[in-house]
Amino acid sequence: MSLDKEKIKHVAKLARISVDEAKVDSLTKDLNSIFKFIEQLNELNTDKVEPLTSILNQSLRSRTDEISDGKIREKILKNSPKKNEEFFVVPKVVE
């Protein structure tokens, strides 16, 4: 299958990345060559194969659900590009 420009713009929208109109052509070309390469997998019949979901022969550990740290609000906010005392600030979302 091939990806057209409209499809790529749609995927970019899903990924929350704005795509420069001038770059759409070269992006389309690159992605199509990558997908052509990926689609070699269609040569293989995998009907009877179980998908690999974990590489480790162990299941995920569980732990007691208790708080192990806290009171680190300042550390968490430290790297925020825009904050207001105790909060992250984002562009207005409700009128």
């Binding site: 929350r16 590009p81 562009p91």
Partner: peptide
């Protein structure tokens, strides 16, 4: 662009800021 890292100054709403 909210919790850490670079944030664009362009965009009229939250979605455009993300993009």
């Amino acid at each position: 662009g909210v919790r850490y890292g670079y944030r664009s100054q362009k965009g009229k709403d939250l979605i455009e800021m993300y993009e």
